[in-house]
Write a protein that binds this DNA or RNA. Structure first.
Lengths: 348, 348
DNA sequence: TTGTAGGCGTTATCAT
DNA sequence: ATGATAACGCCTACAA
C-alpha cells in the first residue's frame, strides 16, 4: 500500500507538505506542488479512507436510506439513488446504502459510528420515526419528502399540490366538466402519506376553482380493482370525461378498460397520469402526464446536506431549507378537447 | 463522542478488554463481559468506523457498482441492490453505492483507498474493463453476470440458457410447432451482452431438440418497433402460434397487437415472457413467465465476496465460484395448448 | 483471564 | 513556504 509518507519521500518533502498539497489548505510553491503531484501519480497514491476519516473527523460518506416498501414506483427510487450518488461524488463524497429494514437504528448506527457525515432520508413519512434519531445524533440530513414538522431540517420534494392542480387545469382547459381522480390504495391514505394527500388537495382546490365536478376514488391498482373502480365511477357519474390517475399500476388497466365501456381515448375520455416520463411514453397512445424531476430531487438533497455539513464544520447554524420542485405537464395523445357532449347512445 | 476508552473506564477494565469483548477474539469471564456490555449500552457506544478501519485494516464495507444503462429492467437492479445491502448487514458489512459513470476508476478508487474490502460488480460485460482493475488492486470481488474469462473470479448469474430452454419446452409441451423469439434491440446483441446471447442459445438448442420451427427477431421495444417486428414475423411465418418475449418493453405492445391481427391469447397464440414476476402479474391476462430469483442473486454475490475476504484474511487462496441460479417458469393465462391448426380464415 | 503499549495513515497545530 | 509532531480511536502482539 502506498502511503502519504511514501509520496513525501519520493518527492523529497515532508508528509505534511504532501497532505497540504492534496487538501489545498495552505499555499504551496508551484515547484513542490508539481513534484508532489508527480510523485502521487507515479506511485498511484490514494489516501487511506480510514485514516483520513479518523484524523479529519469526517468520513466523506453520506448515508442514503431507501424504503423497502414498493408502493413507490421503483425505477424512480433507483433514479434518485443514482443521482444522489453522482451528485455526492461531485462534492468528493461517497454514498452508503442503508435499507429501511434497520429502521431508526440504521441511522443511529451510521451516525454514532461516524460512518457517515450526513444522511439523506427517502420516502419520509409525516411522522417519521427516523427524524428524532437525526436530532439525537446531531447529524446533518436532508429529507426527500415532507415530514409534518420540518423545523431544524432541510427537505426537498415534488410539489405534489402543484401537480394535482396542473391536472385539474389541463382537463378544465380542454373543456371537461366532470372528472374523476383515481388514487392510491386506501391504505396509502390511511397512513396519511403526504404525497398522496397533497396531490389530492392540490387537485381538489384547483378543480373547485375551475368549477369542475369531481370524484375521488382510491384504487389498489390491480386489473380487477381498477375495473371495479371505473365501473363505480361510471355508475356514479356517467358523464365523466376526464380521468386523473395517481396510481401508476392502474394506468394500464384503465387504458384497456375505457374502450370496453365505449369510451375511446382521447375522443370520449381524456386521461392524465401522475407518473414518470419513462412510464408515460411506454403506453400507446402516449400518456399525457405530470412528472416531477426525479434526478433533481437527488441533486438538491445532496446540495442541502453538503451545505449543512459545511455550516456545521465552521460552527455556524445550518439553515433549514424547504424546496418544492415544480412538476411538468407533458401533453401527449391520451388527452384532448371535449368535442361535444357525449351522446347517450355512445355510452355503456 | 463515546470512545472505547470511555466504556473501559465506565466498566472498570482496560480498553483492550472492551475491544476483545466486542470482537469476541479472546475468552472473557462472564462477569467482565456483562459489565462491559452494560457499559456499552449505557453509554450508547458505537465503535468509530474510521479508527476501526485504520487499526483493523478492514473497512467492513463492500462496494456495489451499478450500471447507469437502463436496458436492464430497473426494478430488478433495485431489488438486487437492496438484497445485497441486507445480506451484507448480516455479515456486519455496509454497502457503498458506486455508479458506473466513474468507470474502472471508481473501482480503483475504492480499492486503493481501502474504502471497500470487496466489490460486487453488477451487469458485467463479457469483456469488462473493470475486471483488470480488480486484479491490479488485488481486491476481492464477485460478479453478477458472467464475463468471458472468469478465472480468478467468483461469479453468479441467472441460468439464462436454462431460461431460454424452459420457454422452448413449455411451448413444445403445449403442442406449438412454430414459434418466434422476440429479443432485445440489435445493439444489445452487437455488444454481445452475455445474458441475451445465452438465453437465445438455450432457447435455440432446446427448440431444435424439440423439433420446433423458430424465428429470432430483435426488437427495440417501442410500440412501433414491436408492431413492425410482429408484422414481419407473421409475414414470414403465418403459422406462428408461440411467442417468447425477452424484451420486457415489448410485452405490453405485443399483447395489445396480437388481437389486432386476429390472434386471441391464449387460444390462438401463446406468449411466454422472460421477466420478473412483478411484471408478469401486472398484465391482463396474467403472463406465463420465466423468472430468475433476483434477491438470491444479491445474497449469493455477498456470500461469495465474504468468503473471499475471509480466505484472503487468513492467507489462503480464495476459491473461484460460478453459480448459475435456476429460473422458474410460472404458467399463467397467456399460454395454453394449441387446440387445432389455425384455420386460414382466422388469420390476418 | 486481563493489562500495556505500539502502530495504523492522516490531519492539523505548532514551529521555523 | 515548509517541517516536526501530537492527536484521532481502535486493534493486537506481547506481558503478566
Amino acid at each position: 500500500m502506498v502511503t502519504l509518507a511514501d509520496v513525501a519521500r519520493h518527492a523529497g518533502v515532508s508528509p505534511s507538505t504532501v497532505s497540504y498539497v492534496l487538501s489545498g489548505k495552505r499555499s504551496i510553491s508551484e515547484a513542490t506542488r508539481r513534484r508532489v503531484q508527480h510523485a502521487v501519480e507515479e506511485l498511484g497514491y490514494h489516501p487511506n479512507a480510514g485514516a483520513r476519516a479518523l484524523a479529519g473527523r469526517r468520513s466523506h460518506i453520506i448515508a442514503l436510506v431507501v424504503p423497502l416498501r414498493t408502493d413507490v414506483y421503483v425505477p424512480i427510487m433507483m433514479e434518485i439513488a443514482v443521482s444522489v450518488t453522482m451528485a455526492a461524488r461531485q462534492h468528493g463524497y461517497d454514498v452508503l446504502l442503508i435499507t429501511n429494514d434497520e429502521g431508526p437504528d440504521g441511522v443511529r448506527r451510521v451516525a454514532a459510528s461516524g460512518l457517515a457525515d450526513g444522511v439523506i432520508l427517502m420516502d419520509v413519512e409525516l411522522d417519521d420515526e427516523r427524524i428524532p434519531v437525526l436530532r439525537e445524533q446531531g447529524i446533518q440530513a436532508s429529507m426527500i419528502g415532507l415530514p409534518a414538522d420540518s423545523t431544524g431540517l432541510s427537505c426537498v420534494d415534488h410539489d405534489f399540490a402543484a401537480a394535482g392542480a396542473q391536472c385539474a387545469d389541463h382537463l378544465a382547459d380542454l373543456g371537461h366538466r366532470e372528472v374523476a381522480f383515481i388514487g392510491y390504495a386506501p391504505a396509502v391514505y390511511h397512513r396519511h402519506a403526504g404525497y398522496a394527500e397533497r396531490t389530492l388537495t392540490g387537485f381538489r382546490e384547483r378543480a373547485l376553482e375551475r368549477g369542475l365536478r369531481f370524484l375521488h376514488r382510491p384504487c389498489e391498482g390491480t386489473y380487477e380493482s381498477t375495473a371495479g373502480t371505473l365501473a363505480r365511477i361510471l355508475a356514479d357519474r356517467p358523464d365523466t370525461t376526464g380521468f386523473v390517475v395517481q396510481n401508476e399500476n392502474a394506468i394500464g388497466p384503465l387504458l384497456q378498460l375505457l374502450p370496453t365501456s365505449g369510451r375511446t381515448v382521447p375522443e370520449d375520455a381524456s386521461v392524465v397520469a401522475l407518473c414518470p416520463e419513462q412510464l408515460a411514453e411506454q403506453y400507446a397512445p402516449g400518456l399525457t402526464a405530470v412528472t416531477g424531476p426525479a434526478q433533481e430531487l437527488g441533486r438538491v438533497a445532496v446540495d442541502q446536506v453538503m451545505r449543512r455539513i459545511a455550516a456545521a464544520e465552521r460552527g455556524t447554524d445550518p439553515e433549514d431549507e424547504l424546496v418544492l420542485l415544480a412538476p411538468v405537464l407533458t401533453p401527449r395523445q391520451s388527452s384532448g378537447p371535449l368535442l361535444a357532449p357525449v351522446p347517450p347512445a355512445r355510452r355503456r
